[in-house]
Each structure stands twice: as structure tokens, then as C-alpha cells.
Design a protein around this nucleic acid. Structure first.
Lengths: 269, 269
DNA sequence: GCCCTCGTCCCGTCACGCGGGACACGCCCG
DNA sequence: CGGGCGTGTCCCGCGTGACGGGACGAGGGC
């Protein structure tokens, strides 16, 4: 009687972000009560926030329920991390699919997970756990390991020190084994996934570098374990990733490794 | 002396939305001052808002500048209007590209413009003005006219009554001509674009319907005016759009038109 | 009938968003 | 070298708009 003062110390923006994040990939429209349940916010707060978001076009009314608005899709397509990589990669991905007749993935690293930026599927391919815009733990995927192997130490450390979730029964969950695997990938330039992210699915992946040598993401080719010869697709993925890196301004490994007489570490195909 | 009181009557959310909308498709990172200029907001307001958005992962720091965050891409991929349509359409779009060897578009209507949801390009094709997540005036594109022809009257009216921008020298800018064209499309089930959206580019488009007969979007095939025979691709586009509509639950035109002896208006191939 | 859940709206209270201004820094030009 | 400009960043008194408990009616299941 009352007019409660706010009791939480989180900002308005944080609540709005919570509401937007409460929508799941498989949702269509969601009711206000369900959003309140998912976010832990009071029903009136959710209702007020959704009204504001609708006014901005970030949400759309659907009867009395609400769903993510098309404007969020438009803004999402402008995100540089995915746009520049995807635009440059698409032709190479199409070539890879043509050459291998398997599913081709492009992903970037975000925290300890990979986010898939583009996927070119094949008619006969397996049902994969990856979705465009979806996440999977980096240590359990080919693209993730390819990126981690060439990431700065603090990024790799964050993954090795964190919990290594068991995505499939063959996932690498021992930090030591993962670290040794990353060292091998660093030498060969190609990462493999032997049913570590899904039963019966194997994959070869290779990192994509930017102008200054930093890792931007990774390309991969994946398919059924008994229909893909990794030794055959690995060179193709590696070559495509190098070609893509070159179009992005990559000039080869750091100069300390380019002294004549010293090896070229990533050409062990 | 002084702690100015807020002087604008727009909400905080509206300012946040303005900041997010201030990023253009071609931008990478943008400075706070530039954002303030684009949004018309005070520099300190922009600075405060960007700090909050960074904390939520909706923006990313890039030196002292700022860019759209990967989380916006993830959320954008969950938007139902594009997700369900894109997922269902991709196989049909691939078939269309295979059969016509031309660029295939999938778009939805938003206000008086179309938003492109997916584009399958071809190596030899022309450089098109369309981008995934980009907008073009509905009246100046094949997909736009295909959607408008089967939209509720108030939607069509909003376009006819508004300004019809001249996108290319052949754009339809006369409301009467456009209305007559929409009536023809309603009869034939196929819309054409004869260099109305870009010089030298033609296109055939056909609407995609949902379970209740409502228009969800449109498919199109486009290419160079002298390399595409519209009479040949139009049936392909029409067929693909009907097949896609069927997988989405469409059962044919409204029942009042299905009485035996009356015509089946959209089968004039 | 009852009861639970839903979307919606009201309202007294106070945290927090507000924006002018200050400050340091880097850059260009004279 | 110094002045002028445009940055990014931060401070601070102010008052407005976000806050959430609760009320209300509608719908649906038992």
C-alpha cells in the first residue's frame, strides 16, 4: 500500500537483456507468465518490458503472446564478427561442399563455446547437433579445437581450466589430453573430431586467420564416420582455410617462424 | 549546478534501440561520438548506454570503439518469422538454383519493405542490391509485389497510399499501375520484375502461404535480363513456392474458391 | 459450480538514468 | 612548439520513470 521500491540491484538493461535471452531457438510465441518464469522477474516487470520492446519493433505481438521481432534478425545480420567472415567464406565453403560432398561448417569462438555462423548441408548427410546461431562447447567440436589451438594462451587456459562437458561418450574431458591434442593441431594445422560431438559423426577442421595472424574462426567438413575418409578431406579443409585466410589479409605464420631454413609448421599435409 | 533533468520524453528503451539501430550494415566498429551524431543523443548518454550494452554482450569493445556483439547474431537467428520459413525453404531454394542456375531469393514483408531472409547466389550472376537481412521497397521488387498481391487490403493500401520510391529508372511509381499489376499477379500467381529494382536485372517471384492461407513471404529467381528467360523460370518458381507452401501446411486457396466448377485461380501456368 | 492461471492495469515510492560540463589525451596545422 | 580541435571518459545534483505487489476479468479444466 504500498508501491514497492525496486529490490534488485541489477540494471534495467540487464532485465531487458534477460527477457530477450529467455527466448529459445525452438520457441515461436511465448506468454508473459512463461517469460517471467524463465527470467525470474516479476510478472508486471516482464509485461512492462515487453510492451516497450514491442514499441521498438524488437518484439512482435502474436495474439496475447509475444515473439522475437524481425528487427532483431536485421540487426543480427549486421554483426561484424559473423558478417565479414561469412561473406568472405561462402565461396570457399561452396567449393568444399562440391569437392567433398559433405556438410561444411563455419564457426567462431565466443567464450568457451563456438557459435556457428554458416552451415552448408548435404541431402544425404547426418542430422547434426549444430545450428546456425547455435552454440556447442569448443573442446567437443572440430572447429572449436582448431580455433583454440591458435588462440592466445589466456583463451585456451579459460577452456582447459573450466569444466570440460561430456557432449558425447567420446568427448575429450581430460585437460591434459586436450592440451596435447591442441599442440598437435598447432603443428598440423588440422583438427579432427572422432565422434566427440556426436555418435557416428566425424569431422576435419582448420583455422581461419586474419590480417594480423589472429584466429577469426574455423572451417570444417563433417559426415558419417563410415562415409568420410578424413585423410582425404583434411587437405581440402586445410587448403580452403588457408585460401580464405589469404583473402582476409593473412600473410602466413609470424615472422619469427619464417626465417629461411626453419620449417613451415602448418604445411604438413 | 547542476545535474540537468532529462528533457526528452522518449523512453530509455527507445534510446537503447536508437543506438542499436545506428549501426549500419557496412560498419565495423563505431566511435561514441559518431553514434551520438547518428542518434542525436548527448555524448554522455550514448557512452552510458554503450557501457551497459557491452556488459550484456549486445555490444563488443574494439579498442575505444564499439561494434555489434555476437549475441545479437545468436538472438537474431532465433526470430521465428525468418527461422521457420528459412528452414523449410532451403531445400526448395537449392533445387531452384540447381534447375535455373540463377540467384534465388527468399524474403518477407515488414511494413512497406521486404527483408531478405536468405539468398543463394551463383558464381556468374550479377551483383544484386539485395543482402541477407537487408531491406528494399516492396513495390520495387519481385518478391515484394508477390507478397503484396496476396496480403490483406490494409497492408496493400499502406504501400499504395505511401510514397512509391523510384529505385531504378523502371520502378513502378504510379499507384494505379501498381494496383493493376497486383491484380494480375493475384490471377497468375507469379510476379515479375523487369529492371524495376536494378538495371539489367529481371526476376520472377511467387508467394509462399502458411497453414491458414496467409502470405508468409516469397521466393524469386533473378539474373541478367539477357540470360534469363522469364517464361522458363516462372513455372519453376511458382512450383517451388507451391511445394514449400504445402510443407508449411497450406491447403490451397480459400474454400469459397474451391467449389467444383469454379476456377483454381493460381494454376495458370 | 469452483479454482487455478492467464494477460492487463493501477499506483505510491525511490533508485537510476539524465546530460551539461570537466578533464586528459592524441592529432593536425600553423 | 603551442594552440585548437575532436576524441573517450568520468563526475554529480536532479527528478522522472521504472519498480512490483496486488487487483480485476477472462478463459479453461475438473
Amino acid at each position: 500500500m504500498t508501491g514497492m521500491p525496486p529490490k534488485s540491484d541489477e540494471s534495467y538493461l540487464h532485465r531487458v537483456s534477460r527477457v530477450l535471452g529467455a527466448f529459445r531457438a525452438e520457441d515461436d510465441a511465448v506468454g508473459a507468465a512463461e517469460l517471467a518464469r524463465r527470467t525470474g522477474l516479476p510478472r508486471s516487470t516482464v509485461h512492462r518490458i515487453t510492451l516497450g520492446l514491442i514499441e521498438e519493433g524488437l518484439l512482435e505481438r502474436c495474439g496475447t503472446e509475444v515473439r522475437l521481432g524481425l528487427r532483431l534478425f536485421e540487426i543480427g545480420q549486421r554483426v561484424p564478427r559473423q558478417r565479414v567472415l561469412r561473406d568472405a567464406a561462402l565461396p570457399y565453403m561452396a567449393d568444399l561442399r562440391e569437392a567433398t560432398r559433405q556438410t561444411v561448417h563455419l564457426a567462431v569462438l565466443e567464450g568457451r563455446e563456438v557459435v556457428y555462423v554458416e552451415i552448408l548441408g548435404t541431402p544425404g548427410g547426418p542430422a547434426l547437433p549444430s545450428r546456425v546461431g547455435g552454440r556447442l562447447p569448443a573442446h567437443a567440436t572440430g572447429v572449436g579445437k582448431a580455433i583454440l589451438a591458435f588462440s592466445p594462451p589466456e583463451v585456451t587456459r579459460a577452456v582447459l581450466d573450466g569444466e570440460l562437458a561430456r557432449v558425447s561418450e567420446r568427448s575429450l574431458v581430460a585437460p591434459g589430453l586436450l592440451a596435447r591434442e591442441l599442440a598437435r593441431i598447432r603443428r598440423d594445422g588440422v583438427a579432427y573430431d572422432n565422434e566427440e560431438s556426436g555418435r557416428g559423426i566425424v569431422c576435419a577442421a582448420s583455422p581461419v586467420h586474419g590480417r594480423d595472424g589472429e584466429v577469426l574462426g574455423a572451417l570444417s567438413v563433417s559426415g558419417w564416420v563410415n562415409r568420410v575418409r578424413l585423410a582425404r578431406v583434411a587437405p581440402a579443409v586445410h587448403t580452403a582455410a588457408l585460401a580464405l585466410s589469404r583473402t582476409l589479409g593473412y600473410r602466413g605464420p609470424a615472422q619469427t617462424l619464417r626465417q629461411p631454413g626453419i620449417q613451415a609448421p602448418s604445411s604438413t599435409v
